[in-house]
Amino acid sequence: MTWVVALNTFREAVRDRVLYNLIFFALLMIAAAVLVGQISIGIEHLVIVNLGLTAISIFGLVMAIFIGVGLVYKEIDKRTLYALLARPLRRRQFLVGKYAGLLLTLAVNTALMTLGLAVALFYVSRTFVRSDLSILVAVYFILLKLALVTALALLFSCFSTPMLSTVFTLGLYLAGTFSTDIRSFGEVTESPALGAVTKFLYYLLPNFNNFNAIAAAAYGRQIPLILVAQNTAYAAIYITLVLLAAAAIFSNRDLK
C-alpha cells in the first residue's frame, strides 16, 4: 500500500517540469565550478568539489522544502485525497508513502547531480583517487539531511499552508544549522536559566551541522566510519519521531 503511494508521488515529481529546471541549474552550477576551478590554479579539485557539493545540497534543500510542504496540503486542498482514502489505506500509510516517494525523488536527483559532479571532476583531473570516496560520503550526508528536512516539511504540511510550512521548515533548518552556536551562546552567558534553555534547544533542534562533510570531502580527508554510523542513527531516530508526530496529527484531523 505504502509503496503504491510512494511510486505515484515519485511519478508526480518526475512529471513536474519545475524539477527539471532545478536539475538544469544544479548541473549548470557544477559546470560553472569547472570554469572557476580552471582559474584557481592548483586547487581546481578543491574548488570543484566544494562548489559542486554545495550546489547539490542547496538544490536538494530547495526541492525537499518546496515539494515537501505541499505533499499533504495539496492533496487535501485539491481533494485528491478523498477518493484515495476510500481505498483500504490507512492515513499513516499514506503519509509514509508520500514521504518515501519524495525521498526516492530526492535520491534519484542527487544521484544525477553527483554524476554531473563526477564528470566535472574527471574532466579536470582525468582520474579518480581513493580520497574521492569521501565525496560519496558527503553526498550520503546531504541525503540524510534532505531526508530529515523532508520529514519536517511533511510534518508542517499536515496542519499548515505551504507558505507557513516553508517558513517553519526553513526556520528550523537554519536554527538546526546553528544549534551548536546556540549552545555555545548559553554557555558563555551568566544566566543559568538562559543556559538551560539554550541547552534544551540544542538537544531539541535537529543538528544539521553534523551532516556537513563538504569541507572534508573537498580536502580529501577521510570521514570516520563512526561518524557515518552516528549520523545515520541520528537521522533515523529523528525522522521516525517526526513522522510519528505527523501521523498522530494527520490521523486525527478532519479533511475540509
Binding site: 503504491v4 477518493a83 489505506l89
Partner: peptide, 30 residues
C-alpha cells in the same frame, strides 16, 4: 473499504495522470 466504493462530490483527481493510469493506481490497492 475493500467492499466499498465512493464518488466524492465534484471529484478532482491527480491531473498529471491519464484516466487509465489513475484507475490503475487505485486498483493497485486491491
Amino acid at each position: 473499504h475493500h467492499d466499498v466504493g465512493y464518488l466524492p462530490e465534484q471529484p478532482y483527481f491527480y491531473d498529471y495522470l491519464t484516466a487509465r493510469e489513475l484507475l490503475d493506481y487505485f486498483a493497485r490497492f486491491f
